[in-house]
Design a protein around this nucleic acid. Sequence first.
DNA 1: GTGCTTGCAAACAGTTTGCAGATAG
DNA 2: CTATCTGCAAACTGTTTGCAAGCAC
Lengths: 145, 145
Amino acid sequence: MTDPQERFDHLVARLRERDHRLTPQRIALVRLLAESQEHPSAAHLYSQLKEQFPTTSQATVYKTLALLKEMGEVLELGFSDDDNRYDGNKPYPHPHLVCVCCRRIMDPEVALLKTLEREVAELSGYQIVGHRLDLYGICPDCQRE
Amino acid sequence: MTDPQERFDHLVARLRERDHRLTPQRIALVRLLAESQEHPSAAHLYSQLKEQFPTTSQATVYKTLALLKEMGEVLELGFSDDDNRYDGNKPYPHPHLVCVCCRRIMDPEVALLKTLEREVAELSGYQIVGHRLDLYGICPDCQRE
DNA sequence: GTGCTTGCAAACAGTTTGCAGATAG
DNA sequence: CTATCTGCAAACTGTTTGCAAGCAC
């Protein structure tokens, strides 16, 4: 995981460089994203933001997320049957490990993925440009119950 | 790929065994799914079904898909930013190769996936119960353009 | 002061549901 | 005959958009 403060500074710098305004709401949201490890949903970010800014709206969250997505600074994990989840700390595609029980999402080390992509590229003739790998499982905590 | 006729017979047998009614609409939809290689969307299935049954509705398509999903006989590929796609020929989770250009979806051979899952299970302590692997790329046809 | 951003509400798209009439078994 | 299925339309959910007022710069 990238150091949250470093990541926050990077995001603020990138926004400034593109002449985007650093409103208090936006700064707070960027901070949440820079610190995030738990791959929060938009609704979750909204409810955290609302603690500091009671009048804020979901639209603000979605608009800022859209902006950062377009800048390549957040990764959106789309779930068609559930809220989407966001990663503002590691914004590039990477594997996820999703607990089917508590919906916790973590980032596993997957050394073999590069080799796997190369294997598929050679066999299929496709030029691979990205991936989405979610492993579903039961986390150690949930196994205990 | 499973032989479409064999797959169709299997699906019909499973529906019959659970005392579900074999209406003409349902039979036609099951046939489309048994023959499908192109991972059709609900809208695509609906438009094909509509050729034979002009008064049919999307609800019928969705209800039959829900039934077959629940029976474990179709695989739903959820895309949060696009229509979901369905595989009624190979209904168990398997990797997909998605062309970012023409949205064609095919099934690559991925020998390494099992090893990869084992690697992650050992390192994380999770009990792996499933996966979703989509590789995004540009298919040979689209590369030519 | 300028024009990007906010926050409200309405729109949107894909999917699901309720229900009355049709129909497979 | 009767319980399930169909097909219409309305509801639902997460996300996006339009717009007037607010505020960063």
